[in-house]
């Protein structure tokens, strides 16, 4: 399965995302922000980083890039899209997901192994988890505070669009401890933590079993492979 990873000017984790796709058994395809071509991919990852130096607002300039026109129409037609960190910000600025992401309430950049609860295990990117399952993947951001108006928040909660929630500590002041969202259809998922940094023993978060052995992020990528097989 060919999974596209878009590189924007200032993307940081595009290569890690490509590697995660490969480790999960997929074929990563590098996509370029300036192109109007999705190269026949079946799913898309918008990686983390600091596209356009976070100028204007995080993800705002990237959301205007040529490839995002294609990503938005493909997503609206049902193509699976995963936005990680800056990719989540781009999804929000592209209106594929609701709400906004603002500077962490404490003002500092945060980098930690973050405990999360999977709230929705029925999306294209989470079907290899079980609802309520607790996982640990790295989090690293300065502007990860999720906000939305009361009405939107109520809708997200009641319709199961909260995909992930922070556990133990809320690292950035996100409302309702929201770490990630899905759209109503379940093909678009965005989250601030980085699943692509927890895909191979030796390089992931610490677990009770061994240092750096956490691979909870891998199932984001095996989920999408499973989803496509199921649809084939």
């Amino acid at each position: 399965m060919r999974i596209g990873v878009v590189t924007f000017p200032g993307s940081l984790d595009d290569r890690d995302a490509q590697r995660a796709v490969r480790l999960a058994g997929g074929e990563p395809v590098a996509l370029w922000h300036g192109a109007h071509d999705l190269d026949g991919v079946e799913a898309i990852v918008l990686p983390g980083g600091f596209s356009y130096g976070d100028y204007l607002r995080c993800g705002a300039i990237a959301a205007q890039s040529p490839i995002m026109t294609e990503v938005v129409s493909a997503a609206n037609a049902g193509m699976p899209v995963l936005g990680i960190c800056n990719g989540f910000q781009i999804l929000v600025e592209s209106h594929l997901l609701p709400g906004g992401l603002i500077r962490n309430d404490h003002g500092d950049f945060v980098c930690r192994d973050q405990r999360l609860r999977v709230e929705n295990a029925d999306t294209a990117w989470t079907n290899q988890f079980t609802a309520g399952e607790e996982i640990t993947i790295p989090l690293k951001n300065g502007e990860g505070g999720f906000i939305a108006d009361a009405e939107t928040l109520k809708r997200l909660e009641s319709e199961g669009q909260v995909a992930f929630r922070y556990l133990q500590t809320n690292p950035n002041g996100s409302l309702n401890d929201i770490a990630g969202l899905t759209n109503a259809r379940g093909n678009v998922v965005g989250l601030m933590p980085h699943p692509e940094h927890a895909v191979e023993a030796g390089f992931g978060p610490d677990t009770d079993a061994a240092m750096r052995s956490g691979v909870d992020g891998l199932r984001f990528f095996t989920s999408i492979l499973q989803q496509t097989l199921a649809n084939a």
């Binding site: 204007l56 600025e93 906004g100």
Partner: peptide
């Protein structure tokens, strides 16, 4: 449209 984000 672009210079501001009405959500925030």
């Amino acid at each position: 449209d672009l210079l501001s984000n009405g959500v925030i």
